[in-house]
Write a protein that binds this DNA or RNA. Structure first.
Length: 351
DNA sequence: CACTCGTGGGG
DNA sequence: TCCCCAAGAGT
């Protein structure tokens, strides 16, 4: 039951997009006639999950330069991909990226339907719709945070999220046009990112100003309603930064699941709500570092105390040679720990 | 449905 | 300082 008013909204949005589409590294400009590369669309959409455009740009460039197609990525070393993803967060994305690349390479290419795409690791309801619409011109509706916000305002929907998600999804589906679904999907998201913003929406220059119920009601800035999240608890932990006399660092590869799964890190205690007990990875004269690492994850604050030591050349464990060690290959909390411990080593090695 | 899972920027 | 937020997925 797509009526003329709905057609008008999608038309106005596409017109606006034709004139104001942002220039993004993974984007084919509207009306250019070029065919999007499903690999680049997929990679960008996974990187953009819960992550800002600004944070993604450099990573996208590095990945596509080093691994230009899905076959190259599928053949990559796991540790190299995890290292390249380091700092971007949500590391399950990188693990699933590799799994997905290997399935797709084995199949000779990406599925070209939403249902087929959604069977792949790391591709859920949003990403499957985005790839199907943008890369394969399928009439699918993307629903991300931007779309939820735009729909809540267009229809002045006051049901709080996440309960409102099915309603907002249905409203979004009702607006999706039969032509240019990929450009339309990107148009709604661009509108949400640049005009229909979470705070201080620029309603005065919005192409959908006269269509917007919340604009008429004066409720745009307070929508969408959301249930308030629980406060983050503080967790405590202890990490051991040890260095061999030849400069190699004692590290560990974290398990392939859970927090920072698959990433390199410093050995240490579990992180809990009580002061950690000693968990030295190898016997040594471990010295406490006065300052502590403070880092905030999605659902808790971490205070990480450090111990440092010089280790004998025959100490057991995973050692990363000095010339192979790059802090940028570490997740941010581990990079902070290294930065805090480094002076201890440089200072004691000076004459 | 509720929880886990990173990080950096903005108000 | 603290909270919110960002092109969500997996369990």
């Amino acid at each position: 039951m797509r009526d003329s008013a709905d057609t008008g909204i999608s038309s106005r949005l596409l017109d606006w997009y034709d004139r104001h589409a942002r220039d993004l590294p993974w984007r084919i400009p509207p009306r250019s006639g070029a065919q999007p590369d499903p690999y680049r669309i997929w990679l960008s959409e996974v990187m953009l999950q819960q992550t800002t455009v600004a944070a993604v740009k450099d990573y996208f460039h590095r990945f596509t330069t080093r691994w230009p197609d899905v076959q190259a990525l599928a053949a990559a070393d796991d540790g190299d991909v995890m290292a390249a993803w380091a700092g971007l967060g949500y590391y399950a994305r990188a693990r699933n990226l590799l799994k997905c690349a290997r399935v797709v390479a084995g199949q000779g290419g990406f599925p070209d339907t939403r249902a087929g795409l959604q069977e792949l690791p790391g591709i859920g309801p949003y990403t499957s719709a985005a790839i199907a619409a943008i890369a394969f011109d399928r009439v699918e509706t993307v629903v991300d945070g931007n779309v939820e916000r735009v729909m809540a305002r267009l229809f002045d929907e006051h049901t709080p999220l996440p309960a409102a998600k099915p309603v907002l999804t249905a409203l979004a589906a009702g607006l999706t046009p039969a032509h240019r679904p990929g450009d339309y999907a990107q148009a709604v998201m661009d509108l949400g990112a640049t005009i229909c913003t979470p705070r201080n929406p620029a309603c005065g220059i919005c192409p959908l100003m006269k269509d917007c119920s919340a604009r008429a009601a004066g409720t745009a800035a307070m929508l969408p309603l959301k249930t308030r999240k629980a406060a983050k608890p503080v967790r405590l932990g202890l990490a051991y930064v040890g260095r061999r006399v030849d400069g190699a660092w004692l590290m560990e590869r974290r398990p392939g699941h859970g927090l920072l799964g698959g990433m390199l890190g410093w050995p240490g205690s579990a992180w809990g709500d009580t002061p950690p007990t000693d968990a030295a990875p190898v016997p040594a004269d471990w010295s406490p570092v006065t300052a502590e690492v403070r880092h905030t994850f999605t659902h808790f604050h971490l205070r990480l105390s450090l111990r440092v030591a010089h280790l004998p050349i025959d100490a057991p464990g995973l050692f990363v040679a000095a010339q192979d060690f790059t802090p940028t290959a570490l997740p941010t909390v581990m990079r902070k720990a290294h930065a805090l411990a480094l002076p201890y080593f440089t200072q004691t090695e000076a004459p």
